[in-house]
Design a protein around this nucleic acid. Structure first.
Length: 278
DNA sequence: ATGCCGTGGAAACCACGA
């Protein structure tokens, strides 16, 4: 049998980051148990130092902790039966938990926020409500949640600490972030007042990491399951990284693991990541 | 313009997602 060694680079060349950077990723997995093979393959291939996950769709006791630990990660998570659920995975070390609910509404029982400190950086992992249909109670809930996030973010910003606020914001910030903007203007993900809420948050002084490094590029993080949306590239950019000012100076790379969206039994979102210099 | 797909959970359909 003929062997061919020339077509594959040694694995070391595929290693995603040199030792002096910190790679932080966010990934809406859309059901952590049904996506477990995809999640583990992605962790192995891209080796983020921190992975923020959303839409676990599993209660606390059904998080596949053994598999996550076998992959080299320790985790904080806030699960919920059937829906929502967020987690922060950290390679080799346990993230230092700061809180597991977004402050401001003791009656909000959705698992949509968890915050930890890793390597001196505060990392908020969030799953902002979808908000459809508009109008209605779900949209009202989205806007209230947005106000609470903005208030919490203001406190974090004022602390002067290094902060990353990342996750599924369920907002396309501009027309560049939607494959057909005119079709989405009345949707809860793209209504002018929703975009305005996102803009108000960012205007506290945060940096949209993807847009800082790729200001003009069409970049999506979500493609619908139906109508062959991925292959038509009918996508949305709704998963974001907001960085505090000092971290913004350490930003050296940012991107989307778009290919993961093409895998079998995959989520409708693709992972998004940043790399920070030490 | 639209859940056409996909998941979880309960109950052979429904809620939910974006």
């Amino acid at each position: 049998m003929k062997t061919n060694n020339s077509t594959h680079l040694p694995l070391v060349y595929l290693s995603p980051q040199p030792f002096h950077t910190m790679k932080i990723a966010t990934y809406n997995v859309n059901g952590i148990n049904s996506r477990l093979p995809v999640l583990l393959r992605w962790l192995k291939e891209t080796a983020p130092d921190v992975a923020c996950l959303q839409e676990l769709k599993a209660p606390h006791e059904k998080i596949p902790l053994r598999a996550i630990e076998d992959a080299g990660y320790q985790a904080l998570w806030h699960g919920q039966k059937s829906w929502n659920g967020v987690a922060i995975l950290c390679r080799h070390t346990l993230p230092e938990e700061r809180c597991r609910v977004l402050p401001g509404d003791p009656e909000d029982l959705h698992s949509r926020y968890i915050e930890a400190k890793v390597n001196g950086i505060i990392i908020g992992c969030l799953y902002l409500p979808n908000g459809n249909p508009v109008p209605g109670p779900k949209f009202d809930y989205k806007m209230r949640w947005f106000e609470r996030l903005t208030a919490h973010a203001a406190g974090l910003f004022a602390s002067g600490e290094d902060v990353v606020l990342t996750g599924d914001y369920n907002v396309m910030p501009t027309e560049l972030d939607v494959y057909k903007p005119e079709r989405w203007v009345k949707d809860a993900l793209f209504l002018p007042e929703v975009r305005e809420a996102f803009h108000t948050l960012v205007a506290q002084g945060w940096t949209d990491a993807i847009r800082k490094l790729h200001p003009e590029e069409v970049i999506y993080t979500f493609w619908d399951f139906f109508r062959d949306a991925y292959n038509r590239n009918a996508g949305l950019r709704i998963d974001h990284f907001l960085l505090s000012p000092h971290l913004d100076k350490r930003l050296v790379a940012a991107g989307v693991d778009r290919n993961v969206r093409g895998w079998e039994k995959t989520s409708d979102h693709a992972p998004v990541w940043i790399e920070l210099a030490s």
